[in-house]
């Protein structure tokens, strides 16, 4: 056997257990779900009839589905750039300080380790209208008008984005920080000697070297935002994704169809759409971002 063939065998041996695990625990339920999207199964009913593309037709005629699809895209478009830029900036700043760095890291990661249900509840109160809302009290102390936040058609989705960014920021900072600390000092010093400003050396040297980290964060954060659910469920009245579906993401739509209306067929077809959306975005990101590495 040639060495390269031997390595191929080794690779498959290493992958054997995980692959069996993935096939049984992840792919089988996934395919099951895809199959259900062509049936009219009501969760608690024994009947599962094949209905072809009926569910998909129904979905695209459903205004609420289209709104939640659009909302899901908004969550990603607003949330991901914000969390990436902010965490990179904070991590870079944090990387400069010598003392108490561990303490700041701990404070920043705090929101991420607090249960999301509790976080959502606290933020719900921060966003309240007067007299209760903390944020509104601050605004009014500075002479601004009180804002409706979660009970507004325009502000509610961005408000939830802010909460989510706040939660995920610590996670991204830690991972960026890990990346930043690996960049050899000589690079920056060499750049300094060449007369580069610190901004130039950040964009020309640091950022490209961080690319594998950025790829990981952009892809995983996009997936996180595309699957947003818990905070919307807990920050809106009756978990409805309101007002008037203004904050409802796809996963909440799926959840309501499956567990409120027991319409598993429709929920599954919405899952297929969500799957394709995430897959498309992920492949695109991997393609574009990975290319940049080979500059």
């Amino acid at each position: 056997m040639k060495i390269s063939q031997k390595r191929i065998v080794t690779a498959y041996v290493f992958l054997a257990i995980p692959l069996v695990f993935y096939i049984v625990v992840r792919f089988y339920p996934m395919i099951y779900s895809f199959w259900l999207s062509f049936t009219n199964w009501r969760l608690i009913s024994p009947k599962k009839d094949f209905v072809g593309f009926d569910n998909f037709v129904k979905l695209f005629k459903d205004k609420v589905f289209m709104t939640s699809l659009w909302n899901t895209i908004k969550y990603v478009v607003y949330g991901v750039p914000l969390v990436i830029v902010l965490s990179l900036f904070l991590a870079a700043t944090l990387n400069k300080v010598r003392h108490l760095q561990w303490f700041y890291r701990l404070l920043y990661v705090m929101p991420y380790i607090t249960p999301l249900v509790v976080v959502s509840w606290v933020w719900r109160w921060i966003y309240q209208r007067p007299p209760a809302g903390v944020l509104n009290n601050i605004l009014m102390a500075f002479g601004f008008d009180a804002q409706p936040f979660l009970s507004s058609m325009n502000q509610s989705l961005p408000a939830i984005v802010v909460t989510t960014v706040w939660v995920n920021l610590g996670y991204c900072i830690i991972i960026y920080l890990a990346g930043l600390q690996t960049i050899p000092q000589e690079y920056q010093e060499a750049a300094k000697i060449d007369g580069a400003t610190s901004r130039q050396s950040f964009f020309k040297i640091t950022l490209p070297l961080l690319n594998p980290i950025t790829v990981f964060l952009v892809v995983t954060q996009s997936i996180t935002f595309l699957r947003i659910f818990t905070q919307v469920y807990n920050m809106t009245d009756q978990g409805s994704g309101g007002p008037l579906n203004a904050t409802k993401p796809l996963v909440l739509y799926i959840y309501q169809k499956a567990f409120r209306s027991f319409d598993m067929g429709l929920a599954s077809s919405a899952t297929v759409i969500l799957f394709m959306l995430i897959m498309g975005i992920t492949l695109l990101q991997l393609l574009v971002l990975n290319k940049r590495v080979q500059y």
């Binding site: 058609m153 007002p243 008037l244």
Partner: peptide, 13 residues
């Protein structure tokens, strides 16, 4: 939800 939405349409929109 239908009635919740109806009230929201009036007082929010």
């Amino acid at each position: 939800q239908v009635l919740m939405d109806a009230v929201d349409k009036v007082w929010i929109q």
